[in-house]
Structures are given as C-alpha cells and as structure tokens.
Nucleic acid binder design. Structure first.
Length: 689
DNA sequence: GAGTTTGAAACT
DNA sequence: CAGTTTCAAACTC
C-alpha cells in the first residue's frame, strides 16, 4: 500500500537530548521468534524512589516458555531498577536442552523483583499466580550488597550446568534513573501435535478380538517401551517440557523526558508531546466489537495477520481527545462498558503521571503468545494525534515504542507495527482528525471546501462497512472526479491507485482539488442519485445520463448502474432503460437472480467462517484441576514411536508372508496396543509433582 | 490479463 | 455551450 510505504520511509529526526534510549519492542508478530529467538518487553520505571516499596508497575510476572528446539536458550534478564539505583541486574537462566529437546532444570515460571532494601512489604497481588508456577525465583540482596537469585525459599538458583546465575550491569540514564529491561524467552511456537490419521478399523467381533498370534504382538514390545519412556520424560512429574502459558502483563512506562525509542534500522527517537489515553485489551478473534454504553469512546478492533495466525488480537480503544485528562483517562480504562473484566492482579494500572494502559488476557488458556502493546503504523485512516488534533505524529516507523514524557498523560508503551500487519476492519481517526462532513442535500456550509469524512469502506462509527470497490486510478492521482473514492468524498483505502494523493498525507493537494471541483461544479460532491420530483417516490439521477451506444442497459450508464430508469433529464440516445422496456425487464430479472445467488453465497461463506472461528484452535492441555490431559502426551516423538511399532508389525507380517487381511489386522492391533500404552503411561505420570 | 468500449469529467 | 481529450470503469475475448 502506497501510503504505508511512505509512512515507513519517513525518518524521525534524532533526539535532541541524550535521553536514555530504551530497548524497544522490536519484534513483529510472528517474526521475532524465528529471527533471534528472543522477545523483549520493555519495562522502564526510573521514577520510583529507592526507598519506596515497589508499585505494581515495578513488577512483572512472566512465565518461562517451553523451548523445544535444540540450541535455543531461555534467557530471563531482569534489570531491577527499584532494588536500588546501583542497579543490580540479574541475568541469564541458561538451560541446556537434552537431546530430546526437553528442558532440563527448573522451569522459571515467575520472576519477582523485590525491593529488599525496603522495610515495607511487597504489596499483595503484585504477581499473578499461575497454576503452572513451580518456582518463584526471587532476587535477593544481602546486607553486604550481594545479590543472587533464589527459588523463593532461600535456596540460591544455579544454572543447569551448576554455575551460579550471572549478574550483569545495565546502562544507566543520564539522570540517575535507569531503564529496566525485562527480556523473556520467546513464546516458542509450540509444535503442533501430529494429528493421528484416522484409520478405519473394521469392527472386531468379541470372540475374535485378538486373533493375531501372541508372538506377533510381542514384536514391538521394545519399541513400545520407548513410548512409555517418552511419556515419563515429558510428564508433569519432572516438570520438564511443561508449556507455560503466558499471562497478561501490566506496566506503566515513564521516562524523565520525552523520547521515542525505535527499533533497528538506525531510526532515532524524537520528542513526542501528545495526549492519547488508550485502552488496550486483548480479544479473541470471534469476539464482537465492544461498544461502550454511554461514552464517546470509539472502539476499534484490529486483526493482526501473522505468519502463524495465532497472535492474540488486540483492541485499541481511542478516546475522544477533548477529554484527555489523567482523570478521564483513568475513568476511560475502568469504565469501558461491556469490556471483559480485567483480572484483579492485572487490573488498571495507575501511575501519577502517565497514561493508563491496561492489558488483560482474553483467555489465559488459549493465548499462545505474549500479549503485546501493539498499534499499527500510521495509515490513511489512523493516526496518532495530539490532544488538539492539530499535529499528527505521523511517520512513526514500525517498531517504534512510544514513551511518555514525565508529567504527561500519553499513549505509550505501544509498538507501532506496519499497517500491512493490520487487516480489516481498519481503524478510523478520532473525531478531531476527521475532515469536515461532506455537503448534504441541504447543506449550507459555506466554507467552500468540503472533504471526505471517512476512508473507503469505513463507516462513520468506525466499524467496517462493505468497502467500496478499490479504485485503479493511474493518472488522476485520485484527485479528480474520475476517481470514485474521491468523488464519494472518501479517502482511498486499500486501492490499487498510482501516485494517490487522496489521503491525509496530502491534505493540501486534496483541498485544492476539492476546491477546484467545486469551482467547476458546486454540486460536484452532491449525491448523483436523489429523490424524484414531488409526489414521486422513485429515485432519480440528478443529472441524467448521456449514453449514446449502450442503450442505457449497461453499467456504463449511471442510471442503469443505479438500477433506476432513465428520466426526462437524460439526454441518452436509443434508451431502453425505461419501466416498460422488455429488454430492461429481462436484464433486471437476471440481475436480481444474480444478486440473490450472490447473497446466498455470501451468507454461506459467513456461516462457514464463523463456524471455523468457533472451532477451538487447540484443546486445552490441562484439565480444570490442573492435571495434564492424556492426549497432551501424544507428542510428535510419541507418535513417531507409535509409527515405528506399526511399521515393525508390518515388516513382521511381510516376513511371515501372512495374508493382507491378517497383516492389516496386525498393524491395526499394534496401533491399539500403542494407544493403550499411551493412556496407561499417561495416567501413571499424572500424579502430583 | 490484455485490449476495447463506453460515457463522465476535464479541458479548450 | 459545444467539441475534444482524458480518464477509469465496464466489458469482451
């Protein structure tokens, strides 16, 4: 998309002061994992005084992720600014992997940073508990200043190789305030369980259940043993290989002064002074758009198209910018009517000076990647604007993390991603960002310049309507009435046009073009189809057509296209588009039939897609009481071992030259035995750890 | 998908 | 206002 590219190309000037540059959230959905295997989450809280107990924003609970590829390490890096400003930093929990790819050593499922210098207790509810929690690594500082990581019970943690966990220092800000970076291991793509092919099994009569000779059954005993070993290895008993589900993260970001940290590409930050309270909430794909009951808040759903397609969806809620005080922002976060309640431990974050950003997991059992603060890079239909709506903060490059100037109330901690990661429904701008209303039938607006209200296909309420056909303009720059988008008072949006200027980035050109059109024809932007003369209920083309060759029975004719008969205003030649015309009747009949067909197909498609959405992506691996369900033991390794057993039986059948039906039975019975093995081994492994 | 036809819009 | 050119959509192959 042209406009996106131009946004992405735009460079942000370097910062004017040596403000602390923060590590940014640099991973795009579905990309970071494959690129560097590390997902980073920014946690910056330099404003907390040393002696103060930590507030919620100082604490991040995270969960180690299952790492299932060889050579991949899990690294948890915590820079604990709040411990003291000297900044002890705990780094690295490196856990080598076994040859099976299953983790050895403890599963770090929670990290708690505590201010051990403080005499005040850590406020309750700082860290959300998780059923997957097996260990609570805690940074402990002794009286002589040494720090080490404990398991929460006073025992020092060491790496799997026995070496103590290392401490590293972290860069410090210029004002004695420090950035805190929390880096968690990626949410590794969970290997899907290899689906077991459905094997049609012929019914076996009770008396013939096991007519395969016993010696055949023992053929694969050795191989089957491997299944049990795999299940034991992968069971909850050893706590290894457990896939920790990510939880929501709550944070407040504040920095001493305005700065924007950008991701790679050498793009530097710039000063940002803006006021945009934003509520970010993860939603599940099939959820309806939430509408606040009595609020001017606009809620915009965003769908992130990712490689894996499993990224939790984020909803960004922007608020009418006229009420962007800290108080209203707080209210905004807490009063979204109908929004899913946020878990208590992850509830609204309040910090004296910053915007309120809350994030809640849509369904902790289903999220497979870490919730992120994400918003699209500027698009023609969505911009980051300041409170007055006057100065758009355009051109933030993808990967930019927005940070707040101290004392301001600002959108922050959101990562800008390329708009091509955001699929329909698109976002719309807030009210101040929208252009004036198009002239209506009796519009007496005299400012002379009318402009579009919305983007092509986006309804005024921000929801996505049926999009207009994308235009294909090549020479008009979409600033002439040839362009349907422009003629209808819309911005081009996902069109195929070249050199398009019909967007917010070319406001001036657009205004000039609109003015020029209105000079030629003051009615230029009035609807072409209006009501008929008094007493007539039918619609009518306001200008009439001028068709010469089409008989007004093709879509070249504007009257016919609008499904209305030509009128006395028309200057057409050889018109057949009148009420009684048999040609028109037959064509309209065909058109109606086609329309019905189209609607039926669309309805069927909608139904199918909604059914697909309702289908669970992946059943939960754990039961309600936290026990591991049997099927979760069927890992790819187990499936492979099962196949080995079946193959061995097949080979044995060939060696013995049995009939095909016996051979088939031998293999299928082997499968049954393997399955029993899985179930029994799993049940033995499900005991408390 | 390329080429043609068509009529509205833009221009002279 | 009429004639011509430009343009993008509709249409055909």
């Amino acid at each position: 998309m042209e406009t996106t590219e131009s946004n992405n190309d735009r460079q942000i000037p370097p910062p004017t002061s040596p403000e602390p540059q923060l590590v940014n959230v640099n991973s795009l959905p579905g990309e970071s994992i494959s690129q560097n295997g590390v997902q980073q989450i920014l946690l910056n809280n330099p404003t907390v005084a040393t002696s103060q107990p930590m507030v919620k924003s100082d604490v991040v609970s995270t969960q180690a992720q299952h790492v299932n590829t060889p050579n991949e390490q899990q690294i948890i890096t915590v820079s604990d600014n709040a411990l003291n400003h000297a900044g002890p930093v705990v780094q690295a929990v490196k856990r080598p992997l076994s040859s099976t790819g299953i983790q050895q050593g403890p599963v770090i499922s929670k990290v708690i940073i505590r201010n051990t210098n403080s005499t005040q207790p850590v406020p309750p509810g700082l860290v959300g508990t998780s059923t997957a929690t097996k260990l609570t690594p805690t940074l402990v500082q002794t009286a002589d200043g040494k720090q080490f990581l404990t398991d929460g019970n006073g025992r020092q943690l060491v790496s799997a190789t026995g070496s103590p966990l290392k401490f590293v220092t972290v860069s410090q800000g210029t004002t004695g305030q420090k950035n805190v970076i929390l880096t968690t291991a990626p949410t590794s793509p969970i290997k899907p369980i290899a689906p077991l092919s459905k094997v049609p099994i012929a019914p076996i009569s009770p008396d013939k259940k096991s007519d395969t000779p016993a010696q055949y059954q023992r053929v694969s005993n050795v191989k089957r043993r491997k299944i049990a070993e795999l299940i034991q290895l992968n069971s909850g008993n050893s706590n290894q290989g457990k896939i920790a589900l990510p939880s929501g993260i709550v944070k407040i970001v504040s920095v001493p002064s305005s700065s924007v940290a950008a991701t790679g590409g050498g793009v530097s930050g710039t000063s940002v002074s803006s006021t945009i309270p934003v509520h970010v909430q993860t939603i599940s794909p099939s959820k309806q758009i939430l509408k606040p009951a009595a609020s001017t808040t606009t809620i915009h759903p965003i769908q992130l198209s990712t490689a894996g397609g499993k990224m939790p969806l984020m909803r960004i809620v922007s608020v009418t910018t006229g009420t962007t005080t800290a108080t209203s922002a707080t209210k905004m976060v807490t009063t979204i009517a109908g929004a899913k309640p946020i878990a208590p431990s992850l509830s609204t974050v309040v910090s004296g000076t910053t915007a309120k950003i809350a994030i809640a997991p849509s369904n902790s059992g289903k999220i497979t990647t870490q919730p992120r603060f994400i918003m699209p890079a500027n698009t023609p239909t969505f911009k980051i604007i300041n409170a007055s709506g006057v100065k758009p903060l355009a051109g933030l490059p993808p990967g930019t993390t927005l940070l707040a100037p101290q004392g301001s109330n600002i959108l922050q901690g959101l990562t800008v991603i390329p708009s091509n990661y955001v699929t329909a429904p698109q976002l719309v701008t807030t009210q101040q960002d929208q252009m004036p209303q198009l002239p209506q039938e009796n519009d007496t607006n005299t400012n002379g310049v009318k402009a579009p209200l919305k983007a092509n296909g986006v309804l005024p309420d921000g929801t996505a309507g049926r999009p207009r056909k994308p235009c294909n303009c090549t020479k008009s720059q979409c600033l002439k009435l040839y362009c349907d988008c422009f003629a209808n008072g819309e911005f081009c949006h996902e069109c195929n046009c070249c050199n398009c200027l019909n967007n917010q980035e070319h406001e001036e050109d657009r205004k000039r073009a609109i003015k020029s059109c209105l000079e030629r024809n003051p009615q230029a932007f009035h609807p072409k189809i209006g009501k008929g003369a008094a007493g007539q209920s039918q619609r009518r083309h306001n200008k009439g057509c001028n068709c010469k060759r089409s008989g007004c029975l093709k879509n070249y004719c504007e009257c016919y296209e609008a499904k209305i008969p030509c009128s006395s205003i028309c200057k057409c030649v050889g018109c057949k588009n009148f009420e009684e015309s048999p040609d028109r009747k037959s064509l309209m009949h065909l058109a109606d039939a086609a329309e019905v067909r189209h609607q039926q197909q669309a309805a069927a498609k909608d139904k199918l897609s909604s059914q697909i959405q309702e289908f669970p992506e992946r059943p939960p691996e754990f039961g309600e009481s936290g026990e591991r369900l049997p099927f979760s033991f069927i890992t790819s390794e187990v499936a492979e071992a099962t196949c080995d057993c079946m193959m061995a039986q097949a080979e044995e059948a060939v060696r013995l030259a049995v009939s095909p039906s016996i051979a088939e039975r031998m293999v299928l019975e082997e499968f049954g035995r393997c399955l029993k093995h899985v179930i029994s081994s799993a049940s033995r492994s499900k005991g408390p750890s």
